[in-house]
Amino acid sequence: MDFFEILLENHLRGGRPETILAQIATAYPLSFHGVGLNIGAASEPDLGYWQRIKTCFDRYQPFLVSDHLCWTGLPGAQLHNLLPLPYTAQNLRVLSERIQRLQDFLGRQMAFENVSAYFNWQASELPEWEFLAELAEAADCLILLDLNNLYVNACNQGFATADYLQALPAERVAQYHLAGYTAKPGFFFDTHANPVYPEVWELYRQALNWIGPRPTLIEWDTDIPPFEVLEAEALTARAIWQTRCPV
């Protein structure tokens, strides 16, 4: 085990999760991954949440902190889903400023993950990869590249994965996520409920070539299999890494 990644919201309340996290922190590097930042909402940011995560980051000093490039709801009506934004130049400016403000407050950079989406906004002016790449530069933030989400979106929306990979500023990609989707009638659904598909392993190989080696995590949070199955997935990722990036 090289590092532990925790779902941030599970560890902001104390009790047993915090006790366990404190024990893990003594022996392993940590990465914190959130789902509650709601950075893309058009409403005011939840400064109470900012303060809670800052306290947690300051205490544990994870090597990476991340959330998603999305919005998840509005005050009084949270959807708890990772929803796409209209990729417009105006939203890029506003989001960039908000991320800079957040990073100033936290005193560190954050990484933002590309999300799976089942529609695009007609108002979008830029492809997702261009928006993500420009945002990372403008806000001086990092990218968590989820290769499963990238593959699902490429298949569902009909773009080339190579265009996406080659557009990203490699030095800003801080981590890879891998997972398995579910094929539904008419589209691929990002469920994190299956082994990584061969096409996504291939995309991982390409990412290692074009972007380079980065900490890699297998996500599996629905229909969780026996540990041996998950371990085999991690060993496959390690084997690909070692083939592409020999020490």
Partner: peptide, 29 residues
Amino acid sequence: LLALQHSFVESIISHSPFELSQIQPVGSL
């Protein structure tokens, strides 16, 4: 953007009318 997000939220929670031309669905959806 606020109007768009508000309209989307209401369509998800309350199934309120939503201007479908605002979105491009993926796949064959």
